[in-house]
Amino acid sequence: MSAPATPPAATTASTTGRILPNRLQSPLARALRSWEALLLVVFVLVFAINSFASPYFLNAWNLSDATFNFTEKAMIAFAMAMLIIAGEIDLSVASIIALASTAMGLAMTAGAGVPVLVLVGLGTGLLCGVVNGVLVARMGLPSIVVTIGTMSLFRGISYIILGDQAFTGYPKGFGYFGQGYVWWVFSFELVLFAVLAVAFYLLLHKSTFGRAVYAIGNNATAAQFSGIRVARVRFLLFLLTGLMSGVAAVCLTSRLGSTRPSIATGMELEVVTMVVLGGISILGGSGTIPGVVLAALIMGLVTFGFGLLNVPGIVMSIFLGLLLISVIAVPRLLRRK
């Protein structure tokens, strides 16, 4: 434990009584005891074990390749984290990717160029977010029910349009979002991931909107009784999640170069896993973006490391499940003692 941070000089001369310090603990002491610190330790461990286990691990290009298995999920996870902190959830994100990708395929068939394709992808995501947002925030339906419904609805539309067909033959320039590199080993997706991580950090931890999100997640009624526009914040969060699913749809479609209605199946649970592993309380009210970033990196490294060792996918998912449970259980067990 550290000494309390020194309070600044008294602000008003006229006030009486004792002066409350700003903080009981310095920010550094708090950070060292945080969930994120624990995740950082896990990250370093996974990195070290991987380096010993496979000679191919410590290679810039291999590591760069490995980032593709989490960047798209992480983009959605940032928005999902805010949604879960606010006490809501969106299980339709993977289906939004399917619908957005299908819409892009239709646009491509109609002869759309790259900028239009991107706009169609983002617009479809946004539109799906509006549907979820209206049902939850305006009509007051529970988000888990609504988004289980729209999960079937959105993907169902893709299946009706595509059947067992696929859209292929996207224009050449479109491949940049999923396959291009900004500089050296840094792919477009990796750079976008980093930029979004910073943007979401600022939005959640430094903006008035982020504060409202935390207030709603801790007690929506009291937040409303404090003058917060609860319904509007919830609506915007669904919009944001829809938009980020659209962004992920553009990247994923570009990377695969084709659209099938089964695209991104099951991704919603991987996104939620990433968010929960990142220390976001599934009950809402707490968690941070740095936690989600670390969780994304850990999940990416574990998947990559196991891939190098030719571990079958099913074992990988067993390991991720155990990791999730133990990372959540261990601190709770330690605290009990």
Binding site: N22, F209, R211, N218, S226, G227, G285
Partner: peptide
């Protein structure tokens, strides 16, 4: 239920309805 937002620190409770006054361009 309707009073203070438990889980948030004291200072964040006090500034909750005044976020506009303690921020510039949406940033606190």
């Amino acid at each position: 239920r309707q009073g203070a937002v438990k889980g948030l620190p004291i200072f964040q409770n006090v500034t909750l309805p005044s976020l506009g006054a303690v921020s510039r361009g949406g940033f606190l």
